[in-house]
Structure formats: C-alpha cells, structure tokens
Design a protein around this nucleic acid. Structure first.
Lengths: 275, 275
DNA sequence: GGTTGACCCCGCCCCGAGGTCAGGCCGGAG
DNA sequence: CTCCGGCCTGACCTCGGGGCGGGGTCAACC
C-alpha cells in the first residue's frame, strides 16, 4: 500500500485517517442486518476488512461491492455455501451453477404447490385423509341409521385401510358399497355393533356370527382378492391392524363376534390371514 | 384390561402376548422414517405407546391411525407445532387453521417464484446485479474503445451505485448516456483512465482536470439533482464510496485527478458532498 | 466531567424438521 | 458363538440467521 494515500477515505485502505464505514452502515447500505454481515464473514463469503484502532471493522467500497453481490445471490436463493465459489468462478461456471440453482428452486416450488393442493382438499373435514368416495360411504352409513359411534369407527378404519393397504382400498370401498345395498347386511351389522355391550358369553353372539358369515358368503365374489394380487410379507399384520381396530379391550363380546365370523369364513375357504 | 383378551393382537393392549408392531413397521406403514416417528414422540404429537419386555415400543391400530394423521398433515406443510392442537381441535378450528396454513404456503410459493424469476434474469452475466439499461451502457463503453479494465471498473461502480443510491440510479444512467454522446467527453475520460499510470506530479493532470471539469460544466443541467431530492444523512458517505471506488491506492495520480475535478466543480457551485 | 443512547465487539443458545453418528441392547439365524 | 439387523438413547449437524448478554467505544447533551 503506497504511503501517500489515505486522504481520500471511503476505500479499503487502513491509513492514518479512518477510511471506510462501520458494519452498521455497510449492512444498512446493502439492506441486510449486522448479524448477517458477520455471518457472511464467519462463513468466508466476505473477507474481514481492516479494523480501526478500536477494533471496529471498516468497510471500503470493494468490501461493499462484494457484500452487495453476496446479498443479491443469497436473496435469489443461492445457498450460502455456493455463493463464494460462484462469485469467484468464471462466467461459464457461474452460468452453469445458476442453472442448477434454478432447477432446484423449481423443484421446490412444484413440491410446495403440490402441498398446497393437497391442503386445499382438506379444507372441510377429512377430505385429505379420505377420498370423496369413502366419505360418501360414511354419509350413507349415517343415512342408514348407523350410530355416530359406529360411523366414527368406520371412518378411522378407512383411514387406516387407506394407509396400510392403498392397493386394495378401492376394492374395499367397492365391497362396502355393494354390501350396503343389502338391507339384511345393514341390519346384521347394526346388531353386531350393539353386541359390543353384550355379555361375552351371550348365546346370541354365535347366532349373529353365523348369520353374518352366511350373508357375506352369499356374495362371495365380493370377498375375492383381485387375480394377480400378491400379498406382501406384512399382509397379516396389516389386516390385523385394520380389522381389529377398535377392539382395544373395549368389548370382549365384539372381539368374540369378529373371531367367530372370521373362523366361519376361513372354514368356507375364504383366505383370511392369520395375524 | 380384561384378562380374556390378548389373542387377537394388533391393538394397543400390552397383554401377555406382544400386541402391536414395532417402530420400524409402524414407520414403514405410515411412510415415514423411524427417526421421524421418534421425533413426533419427542414433540408430543404422538403418545408414547406401551413397551414390550425389551423396551421396544409397540404400536397398536390407534397409534397407527394417529401417526397417519400426523404424517398427512405434516406432509401438507402444517408446522409440527400446530399439528397436535389441530388434530385435537373441533372441525371449525380445524378448518380455520388449515386456511391459515394454506395462506402462508401461498405466500411462500410466491416468494420462491419471485426468487426464481430474479435468478433467471441472472442466467447470463450480471443481469441480476444491473438492469439492461446499465448493461447497454457498458457495452457501449466497450464499443467506444474503452479498455476492459475501465469497463470492469465502471461495472463495479454501477453495481455500487445501484445499491447505495437506487433513487438516483436512473438519473445517473441518463447522465452517462448523454455524456457518451459527446466524443470529447469520451476522449477525455479515456485519457483520464490512462492517467492512472502517470506520475502524481505530472503537470498534465491539472490540465486534464480542467478540461474534464469544463466538459462536465458545459452540460451543467446533467449535474443537477432532481428538484425535491432530499439527500439522506449518509449521502456524503455514499457518494464517497461510489466515486472513490477503485482509488484503492492503485494510483495516486488518478486520485489526484478526481480530487481536482471535484474541486473545480465545487468551485463552480455544483453541490458535491464533502465526504 | 458525567451520563445517555447508539453502536460495536464477541460468543452462546435458539428456531424446524428431522439426519447422522456413536455406543449398546435384543432377537433370530447360521 | 458370532453375525446381522432392528431397536434404544443421547448428542451434534444442517441453513440462515435472530436473540440475548456482557463489555468496550463514540458522540452528543447537560
């Protein structure tokens, strides 16, 4: 540094007169906070400027220029880790890196838009958790006189089913839709739900189980899994979780009823996994 | 818990037989990682399920249901801190909160799109740092035979000017555009740039400074600040940073030339801030 | 010559939504 | 017996800074 300078100030020299602005002004000029400037220093994006006799940083025009460049790239969404190399690179790599950043940004935007669309569907109620078709079934259950408790339970079971066996979910819905067209099925199911409060040894349970199994078997085609369906290794676990949902020790009679129906179906050759 | 259950499994009971799936399966069913499930536990979004004799968590259907619900909301971009209250709230607050989340998401998307647009303009060169109009001026400088060094320096000065005095930037550009129409100005400026390598005491410097000042004063209307312009408190500092950029001890002759021109303009009544 | 308020120094901890690492226990298979 | 994979916990890392606290400095005002 030539000793003859130092009278003009405003540049990066650290001559006798102070020279340069403090961090606060530099930050204000660049439109960032003081913290941010120090952050850039720590991460090597900005060289540490000279200090004055009090230890204050003094920024010259070259420092400010660099700060403005860093801020501009950062504001454009370039990760800080890439800003340094980018500014030091030649025009070619600069352009290539920018294209890359832009691509990632586009991906992120698409992701957020997808999120928002998802979210929008959720605006009134369970639309996110269940598709319209399932919601229609739940409405139909209410119309058919099923209790709110039962409908709530079915709602939960459907959510679980959708999550645990999405590939079978549509078939599952189709089964439900057809069953509900049968008044006898609806009737038996209602009695089954009432059975929750029965004594576990109530003889009506076996009777009801038989009637339910017979009804189910009468439309045996609905019980078939699609040809070519290859159950995964966890099929039994999944089935157990879905089908025995709500058996949480709430009613032994209900558990027993389920077990009896399962046994009868199994005896008739319906492939129900043992969990 | 009634002792008679325990054979069905798949539910949240912690009876003698195991009951429930391990965290790995639960996570896989819900489509998240094991870490994520534990994360949810730590933040109270998910109650800790019972543990088996080895201390492993055992998830029942109710736990899975909750996990699926949490995951669904989280995937929709709901902050985790809001997921818990949301799932426990009634339908009305649920809907209101969702609308809010969606609004924030929309804001964020708009912000990112703006970023991307900014970024795109930057694709070839300095488009981000300088507007087209400024770039045209720089191109014109090259065409007029200014050296690459000079153009690069002017580019930096323009970036600084845009950042430090955006409200005057357009006027600054207009000045430059007009000055460049004057061949004498271009010529004098080129000589000024060459003066960097002169001896600081070279008598030609004073001569050149006078010629430059005369040329500038000949179009004095270009030197005026717009009526009503109220310089901020840092005006002098800003001016110093911009105008003395590149004086970094690089050339005393250049510094002296600048100082002389400034002095002559000031003597002629042009309001140049003392920095 | 105090005192006040603004500014600067540094360093530590905090956010969100988990990821990664390290060290160790548990269960089943070879 | 050892190996592998899954599970446990806790601690530290990410990214771009924000907030806070203790202490030094500067300029102005009383």
């Amino acid at each position: 540094m030539a000793p003859s300078t130092g009278t003009t100030g405003g540049v990066t020299t650290s001559g006798g007169t102070i020279g340069g602005v403090t961090i606060g002004k530099a930050a204000a000029f660049a439109g960032v906070t003081v913290k941010t400037v120090r952050h850039y220093h720590r991460h090597g994006l900005l060289a540490e400027p000279p200090r004055d006799s009090s230890g204050y940083r003094r920024y010259g025009s070259a420092d400010l220029l660099r700060l403005v460049q860093v801020r501009t790239l950062a504001a454009a969404g370039v990760p800080l880790a890439e800003v340094g190399p980018l500014l030091d690179a030649d025009a070619e790599r600069f352009a290539a890196a920018l294209t890359d950043v832009e691509r990632r940004l586009t991906e992120r935007i698409a992701q957020l838009v997808a999120r928002r669309d998802t979210l929008r569907q959720l605006a009134d109620g369970d639309r996110l958790l269940l598709p319209d078709r399932a919601l229609a079934i739940l409405d139909r259950l209410s119309d058919l006189g099923f209790s709110d408790d039962y409908v709530a339970g079915q709602r939960e079971a459907l959510v679980l089913a959708k999550a645990l066996a999405p590939e079978l979910f549509d078939i599952f819905l189709a089964q439900l839709e057809h069953r509900l067209d049968d008044p006898e099925f609806a009737d038996l199911t209602k009695r089954g739900w009432e059975a929750r409060s029965w004594d576990p040894d109530d003889p009506r349970i076996e009777e009801l189980a038989s009637a339910l199994a017979d009804n189910l078997l009468a439309h045996r085609e609905l019980l078939a899994t699609p040809t070519g369906y290859r159950p995964g290794p966890d099929a039994a676990t999944r089935y157990g979780l879905i089908n025995h949902h709500l058996e949480d020790g709430e009613s032994t009679a209900w558990t027993r009823l389920n077990a009896l129906v399962e046994a009868e179906l199994r005896a008739a050759g319906v492939p129900i996994p043992h969990q």
